[in-house]
Design a protein around this nucleic acid. Structure first.
Lengths: 132, 132
DNA sequence: TTTGTATTTGCAATCATGTTGCAAAAATAG
DNA sequence: CTATTTTTGCAACATGATTGCAAATACAAA
């Protein structure tokens, strides 16, 4: 799906910043941080605009956050856009990249009274490239 | 185990800040953020001292970080101290508390060439108290 | 195509979180 | 008690993120 259709089906206006962000993420096939996205983006946008674009697209369900403990928030395309189901992520402690894993996630048993909205799993380790 | 023994068995000096942090976490039975810990702590320590205490105790394997997407790092007692095995955490999106879940974690299959060091799972939802 | 309205942008200011160097203070070993 | 090593607190700094507001832009409707 192209960036234009993604924005349109989520009732968002088409702006250069949003389209640029989506294009960079889609091309990379990974979840990226704000700084990674900015350095791969043609055109110069204010940080504020970036943060607001992320928030808007997250709220609309286009992007989802991935947080690893290096305190850098990364954004990836959400399941409704990729068509994939919920899956674990792999964080390479050497090159700091985040990849999607293919397995599906199994929800743990919750105590009585608790309700679940969402499931996140991060596997930390070293990726193929860094292991070589 | 008391705070004194914990520090001693990990070859750390016994300081008021470290003992205070441990005591607050142990009493709460949850993973807490720096600000939560500070507000429950008698005695006033510089922010720097706090951060250094966390880092020292994390490096020694007494504490471990838990990161949820509100960008607040929480610290809980690590498995070597509690005797528990690796387990998922529950994050309440209403009261922002973090609880430990009892299930054990199952590692997903990794692609060839990838190696795993560590596994984290966060279930987001609403806890018993907030559901009531 | 032009115009009107609602949304989005960029800027400046501000806040929160976290880190570093360094001298003074405290903890431990002997 | 003293010497040595570690830890603390302060100031300065870095980074990530948010807010208010006026100017610019996107889009729908004429």
């Amino acid at each position: 799906m192209d960036t234009f259709s993604i924005l349109r089906t989520h009732n968002l206006r088409r702006t250069a910043c949003r389209e640029g962000i989506l294009k960079v993420i889609m091309t990379s096939g990974k979840a990226l941080s704000e700084s990674e996205i900015r350095s791969n983006l043609s055109g110069n946008f204010d940080r504020t605009t970036f943060y607001r674009s992320f928030k808007t697209m997250e709220d609309s369900g286009i992007l989802h956050k991935i947080v690893v403990d290096d305190r850098m928030i990364r954004y990836g395309l959400s399941e409704s856009v990729t068509g994939k189901s919920s899956h674990p992520h792999f964080y390479c402690t050497s090159c700091h990249s985040v990849f999607c894993l293919e397995d599906s996630l199994v929800a743990p048993q919750l105590p009585a009274g608790y309700s679940s909205q969402n499931l996140e799993m991060i596997v930390k380790g070293v990726c193929k490239k860094c292991n070589a």
